[in-house]
Amino acid sequence: MRNLFAFIYRYRAFLVFLILEAFSIYLLVQNNSYQNAAFYNSANTYVGKVLEMQSNVTDYFRLIPVNQALVRENAHLKEDLFRQRQLAEDTTFGRVDSVLVKPDSLNQPIPYKFIGAKVIKNSFRLRENYFTLNVGKKDGIRAGMGVVAPEGVAGRVKSVSANYSIVTSVLHSKALVSAKLKRDGTFGTVKWSPTDDELTASLDYVPLHVKVFKGDTVITSGYNSLFPEGIMIGRVISVKKESDKSFFTIKVRLAVPFTRLNFVYVIDNARQAERDSLENLVKGGEDE
């Protein structure tokens, strides 16, 4: 307190000048219409800029809950999309009589559920790349689930703790994705090689008699329980026919920008365990 009084006493003349100056400006503004209008217009301009800046700062700090809400909404939209696709396929192949389809058919359960998650760590320049999600067992995540980004296939859940998950990226030397050409349904396998960059992979096992064109769309085949059929993988960027090989050498530009991976969806297939156990049982019997 003593220092405050000492400061005021030391600068008393300057402080009195400021007070008198402010009082003079007040009298000038209050008693002259032109100065009054100019002052309030200027004040409104600066106040507006301050409020706009405050709003921008507030909106920035609200981005996290807004993004989380959008991810949840997109997950529901993806489920609706697959529900409609499944209904269309059932109708096409005679599993559902189109005359008997009711309006509430779209509310029927589908085996796939999409769980939104945020990528909190990601690698894409190694030989074996992984990324970490902020969801785990408490969110219903299990090892072996497929993971997709908004653009397409991203990876497969490798290990899970209570609150986090580690996902094997498509950019992994041992990752394989069952795929097909959307144009004619030819099946193949998408595999990334460490010699490729983070945007490119190979489409293997496409026979030479098949017509493959640059720009062809590559999607998931649905031949395993990880991913539903029809999820985007990428587009063909080059096709080579080599004399010493019985399959094309095809390069695919991956749809997912792994360098900017942010929000993803973990696919919970309610029928995955049943299908896997049955297929493993048959496979085990054949091995014997």
Results as ranks from 00 to 15, higher is better:
143 A>R: 11
160 V>I: 08
116 G>H: 01
102 K>A: 03
127 R>H: 14
154 A>D: 05
205 Y>P: 08
208 L>F: 12
198 E>A: 15
211 K>T: 12
149 A>L: 02
143 A>Y: 06
138 K>R: 13
153 V>W: 01
125 R>A: 14
211 K>I: 09
142 R>E: 14
204 D>M: 13
164 Y>D: 15
163 N>I: 10
100 L>D: 10
147 V>P: 07
195 T>W: 05
199 L>K: 13
228 P>W: 08
165 S>F: 08
193 S>W: 10
213 F>W: 15
157 V>W: 02
220 T>F: 02
127 R>N: 15
210 V>K: 06
187 F>D: 10
144 G>C: 04
146 G>R: 01
110 I>D: 00
106 L>V: 12
107 N>D: 06
100 L>M: 14
184 D>N: 01
122 N>P: 02
121 K>E: 14
173 S>M: 15
217 T>L: 11
145 M>T: 08
101 V>R: 01
141 I>G: 04
186 T>S: 06
113 K>H: 14
108 Q>W: 09
118 K>V: 11
116 G>D: 07
116 G>K: 00
190 V>A: 04
228 P>G: 06
137 K>H: 08
112 Y>D: 11
215 G>V: 05
227 F>I: 03
200 T>A: 12
138 K>C: 10
139 D>K: 05
160 V>T: 07
129 N>F: 06
131 F>N: 01
208 L>H: 09
143 A>H: 08
107 N>A: 05
147 V>Y: 03
182 K>L: 04
213 F>H: 11
191 K>D: 14
157 V>A: 03
192 W>K: 02
174 K>L: 14
200 T>K: 09
192 W>P: 02
195 T>S: 15
177 V>L: 09
162 A>M: 14
221 S>T: 02
104 D>K: 00
224 N>G: 14
218 V>C: 02
164 Y>C: 13
173 S>G: 11
202 S>M: 13
220 T>R: 04
166 I>Q: 10
212 V>M: 02
218 V>P: 02
165 S>N: 06
108 Q>C: 09
203 L>F: 05
174 K>P: 10
195 T>P: 09
122 N>V: 08
135 V>M: 06
183 R>T: 00
182 K>F: 01
209 H>S: 11
148 V>K: 00
142 R>M: 13
200 T>H: 10
141 I>R: 05
146 G>M: 06
138 K>Y: 14
219 I>Y: 00
115 I>C: 05
100 L>S: 09
105 S>P: 00
124 F>Q: 05
159 S>E: 15
180 K>W: 01
231 I>M: 04
211 K>V: 12
138 K>S: 14
193 S>G: 11
168 T>A: 13
133 L>H: 04
131 F>A: 05
190 V>E: 01
111 P>F: 02
161 S>V: 07
182 K>R: 10
209 H>M: 08
